[in-house]
Amino acid sequence: MKNGKIGLGLIGAGRAGMIHARNYRSSVPHAYIAAVADPCEENVQSALKELEIEKGYADYRELLEDSEIDAVIIVTPTKYHCEIAVAAAERGKHILCEKPMAMTVSECELMEAAAKKNHVILQMAFMRRFDSAFMAAKAVVESGDIGDVVMVRSNTRGPSIPKPWMYDIQKSNGPLAEVNSHDIDTLRWFTGSEFRTIYAVGGNYRCPDARADFPDFYDNVILSASFENGMQGMIDGAQGVLYGYDARAEILGTKGCIYLGRTQERGITVCRSDMRKYDEFTNSWKFLFKDAYLEEDIDFADCILNARQPKVTGHDGKMAVKVVNAGNESIKSGQIITL
């Protein structure tokens, strides 16, 4: 570490990557961004200018050889996560990995094994666990105020049309991975249990360009589940909804219910003379979970400084990937999948 501060390398300088980078540039004590790596030269140059740093690499392997780097943030397409994480662990770099953790459970296990062997921290970036409302809801559940949890429902719906590379389920694992990984983790967290059975249905309603070459692609999905402890779960996910970014959850208990998530960009509702009321629907996960990202990044630095295990581990990432794979199998086969 340089002057007692953790030197971080950002691998993947796109939208999500730059959220982490901005946090570490100015808002996380005892940590700083030392370098970025991205195969897109435009991304690298833009990041260097904004972060006011000098070291940018086209190849992440060069970043890993930089002695100033103590830890990395992996924010690349999912299919590269395993390769990068294993290489980082072998060079003694701690790892904060964005979701989804990897493409398969076996890849997740390789990442876990590499981190354990090389004594580095592997933290999964499920930022909703650091959101103040989600944490408050978890405390209410544990207090017993709503009785025993019966069912957890979670949805994530995004306004954007998927990137073309996402159309190939074999390369992206589909919206269950790209959109609903957070929902899967939300269900695991609030039930305190693992998925037992899964039934999912998907369909392509908004992406006509994908239908001819990628008939298996879906932009809308519904997943129902049972859990090992007898609880129930439901997830719905969608891409290209246009109306805004919509992330909400409900925890139903034997004596009450918790509603989670806000949809307004600003805390104002306007009532007009046409007898209608208007408010602005939030259009970005970057706004909705801004504070949660910061708390997640602070926690990662604290884990490194105090040599403790993260609140969200590689195991959590692996179990989400397991559910994604089972959900895609259920969509394809039309069958209930037992885990």
Rank of each mutant, 00 (worst) to 15 (best):
Y57V: 10
V28I: 08
L51W: 06
V86H: 15
E65V: 07
C40S: 14
S26Y: 02
S26H: 04
V28L: 07
I69C: 14
P77N: 02
L64H: 07
A85K: 15
K79G: 00
P100F: 00
K49P: 00
S67L: 14
K79R: 08
A89Q: 15
D70L: 02
R91F: 01
I73D: 08
E90D: 10
A102P: 01
E54I: 00
I74W: 06
A34E: 12
K99W: 08
E90G: 08
V36L: 13
C40Y: 12
G56L: 06
K55P: 05
M101G: 04
V28C: 05
I84Q: 03
V72S: 08
L64N: 09
L48T: 00
C82D: 08
E41N: 02
G56N: 02
K55H: 07
A34Q: 06
E98F: 03
C97Y: 09
P100W: 00
A88Y: 14
C97F: 09
C82F: 12
E62D: 11
I69R: 10
V36A: 10
T104A: 01
I95K: 09
D66A: 03
A102W: 00
A47L: 14
K49D: 00
S27I: 01
H81L: 08
G92W: 12
E50R: 12
H30G: 06
Y80T: 00
D66V: 04
V105G: 05
A35R: 10
L51F: 06
E83I: 03
N43L: 12
E65R: 15
A58P: 02
I84G: 07
S46L: 09
Y60N: 05
V72H: 06
I33K: 06
I33L: 14
A85C: 15
D66F: 03
A37I: 12
P39N: 10
H94K: 09
S67E: 14
H81C: 05
A58E: 08
L64S: 08
C97I: 07
P100Q: 01
L51R: 05
E90I: 02
V72T: 11
C97L: 13
V86T: 11
C97T: 02
K49N: 02
I53S: 07
H30N: 14
P29A: 15
V72P: 08
V44W: 01
